[in-house]
Design a protein around this nucleic acid. Structure first.
Lengths: 221, 221
DNA sequence: TTAATTTTGTATCATATGTTACAAAAAAGT
DNA sequence: ACTTTTTTGTAACATATGATACAAAATTAA
């Protein structure tokens, strides 16, 4: 378990000795769950930091129409809902279900506070963890603010272009998957891609995309 | 200045003595700005925690079409972009402009870390500050995820109904203002309100709203 | 290789919202 | 009380996306 914790975003960068010292000095718990067990229920009070030590969990939500939505999947070393432990409301925003045999490492909130005061690296790690979460959410909000689907596609393509520095790029997911990320239907996505082809912005076939008019693409972002 | 800081979300709950001790022991800076001065530029490295000690600032963004968007206004005691100081990217997401004569209190990131390790209340306050920010962003994201405008209006009205526990409620803003919050045009909002009247869900005239069919309203949320 | 499955491209029609315009009503200023 | 400004209600038309359906193409399994 120590090895997994050392790689987790909470304990990364500290030595094995330090971690062992922390585990000896401060109380913690480990519980195991079987497939389909509930690890936590939506709206539960959130009193502990939880880290997955083995297995796989799903964060699930029930939307207003009663449909189940899988928010994310977390594997070994990942930290569960870190941004809700210290929030005013202090409730789980999602239900958490084990997908297979799974181990969860628990730290009470007050204990975590003491560890952060004793160990600067853990403090900085935790601050970075929730700050990055806020930045991520903020970026997703900006993305949703794009008016049209073509704007979103252009942003997505331009982002890949900047990372790979090549005009020859590739959709990283299937249309079905992309359309879910963009919050539109699959045919709508295909249609928009088709139009961008006709407009001479890109030239795409299946997952392969060639950016033809970078200027026009940038204008859309 | 101490009085303002004592009321800020970073130092709330600590005694005046403790604050004075912190200010004596750790280095900080205060700078003043005149109206229209830039306090920080978008994409600048974010190395300091900033608290407004007097005056008023605006957080501004330039969107892709070059239009200026006012993200928020902060007055005395408010903390600036706390979620970005410890994030990996570590850049200002907005430009900050003083609207009038304004004072800003600066704490270097490393100094803030030391203060948090020395004073548990400040640590917990800061954790709560950025956690609440993440929760707020997460809720806004859910709000944007509502499919139709009527869903958003229903959510907004139902929320007021739950707070005030009365079927007789009142739009808290003008249609223009509300339509901006909902991300639609003003006529579209008026039309949707009109339709909800025709459908017998509400009965509204100007800002006054009477919820006629709470059941139907709840179904929309 | 062949068969089965998934993915993509396209079409049609319905609906929600944008855009623009204008007049009635309400609020604010004189 | 009167004028000016802001806010609200409504309409007509344009556009973007949703829902559904189907066939071609690509991928995977046998």
């Amino acid at each position: 378990m120590e090895n997994i914790l050392l790689k987790s975003s909470l304990f990364k960068g500290i030595s094995q000795m330090e971690l062992i010292e922390i585990l000896n000095r401060f109380p913690y718990k480990v519980r195991t769950f079987g497939a389909n067990d509930f690890v936590a229920m939506q709206y539960d009070k959130c009193e502990n930091l939880m880290i997955v030590t083995e297995g796989l969990i799903q964060a699930q939500m029930v939307d207003s129409t009663g449909k189940l939505i899988v928010v994310e999947e977390l594997g070994a070393g990942e930290v569960l809902a870190p941004a809700f432990l210290f929030s005013s409301g202090n409730r789980m925003p999602v239900s958490v279900v084990a997908m297979q045999h799974t181990g969860i490492f628990y730290l009470k909130r007050a204990v975590l506070v003491e560890i952060m005061q004793a160990c600067q690296q853990v403090l900085i790690n935790y601050l970075q963890l929730i700050s990055d979460r806020a930045v991520f959410l903020s970026q997703r909000l900006n993305f949703h603010a794009f008016k049209t689907l073509k704007n979103k596609i252009a942003f997505y393509l331009f982002d890949i272009y900047q990372r790979e520095k090549s005009l020859h790029i590739c959709f990283e997911y299937t249309q079905q998957n992309l359309s879910e990320r963009f919050g539109v239907t699959r045919p709508a996505l295909a249609r928009a891609i088709g139009e961008m082809n006709k407009e001479g912005i890109i030239q795409s076939k299946g997952k392969d995309v060639k950016i033809v008019d970078l200027q026009k693409l940038k204008m859309l972002v």
